[in-house]
Every structure is written in C-alpha cells, then in structure tokens.
Design a binder for these strands. Structure first.
Lengths: 208, 208
DNA sequence: TAGATTGTTAATCGATTAACAATC
DNA sequence: TAGATTGTTAATCGATTAACAATC
C-alpha cells in the first residue's frame, strides 16, 4: 500500500490526539471532532481513514483504541526502529531529550560527536560515541535512522558517512540541504525556513 | 503579490545557498546548479524566479548578490521583525541559541517561562520574563512572532494568551496542534511527525 | 422515521514537470 | 553558428473539497 505523504503525516498526528483522548477517558471520537482538533475538515479525516482501509462500521464515532492500533500497524515496525543522532551540541541534546520516550517503537539509542568532552559519556540519557566509530556502532546497535544536528558546514560529510554506514532514513536539522542516494529516505527539517515562512505571511497579512 | 507556500519556503532556502556561494567567492549560479544543491529541478528554480518577477537577462547564471537582495525585499521586513519564545526548557534554549544571529531581520528578543529559576535572567543571550508579563513585554518590545516551546499540556493556553497579546504569527514546536483566529498565521512544526514519516518510508523501502 | 454520521466518487485546486520558443 | 541556458505556457500529477448515497 502506498499512502500519500500528507496522509502519513496526519496519521501520526491523529494517533497522538487519539492517545490523548484515551488518557482523558474519551474512548470514541467523531470525524468532525478529530478534524477540529487538527484544523482540517472532517472529509479529510474520513478520506485518510478510507485510504488505510479503516472503517468504524458504526455511526458512533471511531473507537480510539482500535484506530490507534490500526495506525500503529501501518506506521510502526513491530520490533521498533533505532535512531542515532549526530552532533551533541545544544540542538542535538535538546532533540534527544525531547524525543526519547515519546514513541515506544522509535528510540534514540546512540549519539555521535567529535568533541572529546562529549564522547564516551552518557548525554541526555544516551551513549555518546566518537563519530569515527559511526559505522561500527550503527551495525552493532542496528541503527537505521539518523538525525543530523551537527554544524551546517559538516552536514554533507556527515550525510555521506551515514549513507556509507548503511543508514536508511535521515532527518536533517541543519540549514544546509544534503543529497543522498535514492534508496535512502531524506526529510529536510529546517527551522530557519519555517520561521521565515511565518514572517513572510505575517508581513503579507499586515499589508492587506 | 501572492506567492505559493512552497515557493516561499524555497526562496528562503535559495537565499541561504546563495549567501554560501558568495562566501565561497562564487558570484553567479546557474539554475541547474541551484537546483542540484536543493534536490529539485532547474525548471522549478526558474519558475519560482519567474513568479517573483526576477530575470537575469543574461545566460551567465543568476547574480547571487542581486538575487539575494530581490528575495530579501520579498521575505524580510525592512525594519526587522521581533520574535518571542515561550518555554525555556531544553528545546526553547536550544532553539534560541541556534536561531539568533542566523537571520539579521529576524531576532528573538525575549523569552518567557514560569519557573522562578529562569525568569528575570538572561538565558541563551535573551532576557527571560515571567509568562504573566507576556502582554506587556510583547507590546513594549514590539514582538509580532512567537515560538511555542512549552510543555505540550500548556500549548493551547499559551496560544490563547499569545493571540490576546496581539501576536501575528506562531511557530508551534509542541506536539499538540493548536487553533488560532484567521488573522494569525500558524505553522505547526512537529518533530515527532517528521520522525515517524521517515520511519514509515524506511519501512516501506525495506519491504519492496 | 429524521437527523447525524460515514464512505466514496467526481470536481476542483495547487504544485510540479514537460515542452518549447527565445536568447546569449 | 551551435550549444547552453532561460522564461513561459500547457499538461500532468497530487492533494483537498464538494456532492451525495448509504447507514445507524
């Protein structure tokens, strides 16, 4: 099954909202409720669920627990997926601390840096290795996904090493776009771009 | 002029690449070069530039300096735009330290928190105020954009206060989607979603 | 039943790409 | 000139929304 990118993003978001609902004792949710919480239309929610083949078969809203499990089967790997972070500066540490514990099937299991003050220590709850040991640790710890949080000037070199080490997916936090082979999935996640986007539309709104 | 969202994002990216080129002594760049650096097609670059009405009028590539200035006129506010961050935990501090200095016309000028150990101090180079003083500081420091980096459970309350204080654009780093009035521009910037997206496509690739 | 809700197709909208004439 | 490059229109692709039949 090939899901549209945007649907994949929303499924991730729906799931977290559903988990929240359950935590608040709400076991069922209507499409228009889920839509309202995400600032989208109820049709879009229903279409996304249609695409993943999920149907409530009742008119009493979707069963949160059931839908969470259906989304989980799609998004999660049964045995989990291991993540490594390259660069343990402010951003790398914050991302690691922030991320870990949020998703049970997705864990940051190793960090990498070149600063001797950071290597061979536990930082933000994760073992930090020297970057030169990347390939070994990736193999040993079965890491398939990497976050790049190193200085921008190192981004493309880091990306190359990650690809060589067998990484299959990259989330690039640096402001320099990188290039990877077709078989590696890349997501550019650039804060500056989004800040400037907000600024542009604020400016636009102020002019009309 | 109303530019497509995606074009705005790319313009921000082009500009940073062009600045890099200049820093490396490269004064002109072809559409296919710029495209290669961003993993897109040369046609897309040319079309974006067409949309902003820029033309090189030569076949020697675009003049980096000139294009940077054209993009600046579109994206930047002449007098700059001030930004406030709510939440000075790991993430808020990292974002502040990371962001400031990167864009001359966009500066984080104030931070907010409720923790007395954080308020009335300079953190990550920025004055940190108590959140209860939000409205005053926003007015006094002429803040138009806010970053939400507070705990997820506080996100919607924070958003409401920001809107009341007159904020015009929000970048939401928390994993809880928020709702704002039409006249406020909102960008959800959720790391978990993008990590799960990477994980999904890695899983997909491994299955074929 | 009547109203609310759902699932799905068709239509629309927005973004990308193909095709090509114009220019250096 | 010939090849490379640019700017622009038309076609395609992907994502959202409108419309509506089916169901509780």
């Amino acid at each position: 099954m090939k899901l549209p990118e945007k649907t994949v993003e929303r499924l991730s978001e729906y799931r977290r909202t559903l988990l929240n609902c359950l935590a608040n004792g709400k076991t069922h949710i209507y499409s228009h409720e889920l839509a309202g919480l995400h600032n989208i239309t109820a049709v879009q929610v229903r279409r996304d669920l249609m695409l993943i083949g999920y149907s409530s078969m009742k008119k009493k809203g979707y069963d949160a627990q059931e839908l969470i499990s259906v989304i989980g089967k799609l998004l999660d790997c049964e045995d989990g997926l291991n993540v490594g972070v390259v660069g343990m500066g402010n951003l790398g540490r914050a991302v690691t601390a922030y991320f870990n514990g949020k998703r049970p099937k997705l864990n940051i299991v190793a960090a990498f840096d070149v600063d001797p003050n950071k290597t061979n220590r536990v930082i933000a709850g994760v073992n930090c290795y020297h970057f030169k040991d990347l390939a070994d640790v990736v193999k040993k710890s079965n890491i398939e996904i990497a976050i790049i949080a190193s200085p921008p000037s190192t981004a493309s070199m880091v990306a190359e090493q990650l690809v060589n080490a067998g990484i299959k997916g990259i989330l690039n936090f640096t402001t320099i776009p990188i290039t990877v082979p077709d078989n590696v999935y890349l997501e550019e996640y650039d804060m500056i771009t989004f800040m400037e986007k907000v600024a542009y539309f604020v400016k636009q709104n102020s002019m009309k």
